Computed example of a mutant assay.
Amino acid sequence: MAEKTIMLACNAGMSTSLLVTKMQKAAEADGQDVTIFAAASNDINNQLEQQHPDVLMLGPQVRYMAADLKKKLDIPVDVINMQDYGLMNGEKVLKAALKLIDEKEA
């Protein structure tokens, strides 16, 4: 099992699936042991129970969910930077997610 698990969520899980691929390539190039997966916004609770991620990153189109999720979850929740999301910058999103995990563990 991977050392860290990152969950991405957007409306349908489609656009974040492409970002997951780019993040995985960046993680491999950096020697990071991570599991990254995408989920649709209506499946967040189910995926949280099944996968137990260390961080939840939301696509900008579902940023409205962030406040409620932050209140109810004991893992870091953040909205993916809109520019990084639009450019599908897997390396930057990966670094942001890992930084949130490290800050929680510190």
Rank of each mutant, 00 (worst) to 15 (best):
L58H: 04
K4V: 04
D54T: 04
K95C: 07
A96L: 10
K4E: 04
L94E: 03
E49D: 07
I101T: 03
A12F: 11
N11F: 11
K25H: 13
I80C: 06
I101L: 07
A29E: 15
Q32G: 00
L19A: 05
A39K: 01
L19G: 02
N45Q: 14
K104F: 00
S17K: 01
K4R: 11
D102E: 13
M7W: 04
N45S: 13
E103L: 09
Q61G: 01
N46C: 08
A26C: 14
N81L: 12
G90Y: 09
L56Q: 03
K95D: 14
A106N: 09
G86K: 11
A106E: 10
L100R: 05
M7T: 00
V77M: 10
E105R: 06
Q61K: 03
C10K: 00
E28H: 05
S15G: 00
Q24K: 13
K71V: 09
Y85L: 07
M7V: 03
K22M: 13
M1P: 00
E3H: 03
Y85V: 02
Q50I: 09
A9T: 05
I44G: 07
D30E: 15
D68Q: 12
Y64D: 10
D54I: 05
M14V: 15
A39W: 00
G90Q: 13
N42I: 09
K92N: 15
L8D: 04
L98N: 09
N89A: 12
Q24W: 02
V20W: 04
L87S: 13
S41I: 05
K70N: 09
L56H: 03
Q47P: 01
M65E: 10
A38C: 10
H52F: 06
M14S: 09
V77C: 07
T21F: 11
Q51L: 08
Y64M: 14
E28M: 12
A12D: 08
R63L: 07
A97G: 11
V93N: 04
S41L: 07
K95Y: 06
D33G: 05
V55D: 03
G31C: 10
